[in-house]
């Protein structure tokens, strides 16, 4: 018993002192299953998230990418298996302890009241209020605004921004949170070409600082260009996980997406580039619904 107690005291002290350095494996899923509304949307998932690495999650609609992210973040409990954050099951952390370790960018953005962009980004600093790190608030906020190219509208109300601008502000909020594990759910969905690439570079930057980045993407070329590892999900399972060049194989993608693709190496970078095989225009199946020939 005395041994136990001293151990738990040490653990408590360690936690109270903050999250400490990012461990080599900040999060992992082991044989994890997640059920939503009685349906098992994720099953038998083994996944290791590594510090200093960008891990992209790709797969068709409904494959379970967001659910996997929710299991990692602790939003959804695992019905079976285990989800670890740092060295403990993610559900055992208090909300505050978890917030000092992982940041989450959800798919949808909503702010109920007309907070300014700077206020919204500043909310990302909330987990550090009252700790030594709150001294960095101003720098972190300014840095995150610059990094996401949101500083031009920092003093405007969030609610007055376009969808793409709002997405960047939310990205800035997550960056400002300064967490060791960063989870992005489709951060590029509302963004133009330039800002999609910006997100890619931002992820590389976060990983270079020693953080672990997990990012849900639909654009396979982006995934190929910016991730160290890529996990392809299909029907609630991980179909393949590894370097993008290995995972993004034409035959596998064609089967998982039910859409034939070709994969070539990009002439400039040598990275895989995925192109859907497109049938010639006007030769697709006709629905008959738009047929006006009957008069």
């Amino acid at each position: 018993m005395p041994l136990d107690r001293s151990k738990s005291t040490a653990a408590r002290r360690r936690r109270a002192a903050g999250p400490g350095p990012v461990p080599a494996r900040p999060a992992s899923l082991a044989d994890a299953a997640v059920a939503l509304g009685g349906k098992e949307v994720l099953r038998g998932v083994d996944l290791e998230v590594r510090a200093g690495e960008v891990l992209s999650l790709v797969g068709p609609n409904g494959a379970g990418k967001s659910t996997l992210l929710a299991a990692l973040s602790g939003d959804l409990p695992t019905a079976a298996g285990e989800a670890l954050l740092w060295d403990r099951p993610v559900g055992e952390w208090s909300a505050l302890e978890a917030a000092r370790r992982r940041a989450v960018l959800p798919q949808a953005h909503r702010v109920s009241f007309p907070f300014t962009v700077r206020d919204v980004v500043g909310m990302g600093r909330a987990p550090w209020a009252g700790t030594g790190r709150s001294g960095e608030d101003e720098d972190r906020i300014a840095g995150a605004l610059a990094l996401t190219e949101s500083d031009g509208f920092a003093d405007r109300p969030f609610t007055s921004l376009s969808g793409g601008e709002q997405a960047r502000v939310m990205l800035a909020r997550v960056v400002a949170q300064d967490a060791g594990l960063v989870l992005f759910d489709e951060p590029t969905a509302a963004l133009d070409l330039r800002h999609q690439e910006m997100v890619g570079r931002l992820c590389r930057g976060l990983a270079a600082e020693g953080r672990a980045v997990v990012i849900v993407l639909h654009d396979l070329d982006l995934a190929a260009a910016y991730s160290d590892r890529c996990a392809l999900l299909a029907e609630g399972r991980i179909e393949a996980c590894g370097p993008p060049a290995e995972v993004l194989a034409a035959e596998r993608l064609g089967r998982v997406y039910r859409q034939p693709v070709t994969v070539e190496a990009d002439a400039a970078t040598g990275l895989p580039r995925v192109t859907p095989v497109r049938t010639v225009r006007d030769s697709g199946p006709r629905s008959g619904l738009l047929d006006i020939s009957h008069g």
């Binding site: 400490g20 350095p21 990012v22 461990p23 080599a24 590594r50 510090a51 200093g52 790190r133 960095e136 720098d139 972190r140 300014a142 840095g143 995150a144 610059a146 990094l147 960056v175 300064d178 060791g180 570079r201 931002l202 590389r204 930057g205 976060l206 270079a208 600082e209 020693g210 953080r211």
Partner: peptide, 16 residues
């Protein structure tokens, strides 16, 4: 990995 994020350097250098 284990290096904590450098406190005073809001990752601008790496990517911007």
């Amino acid at each position: 990995a284990t290096a904590p994020p450098a406190p005073k350097a809001p990752s601008t250098t790496a990517t911007t």
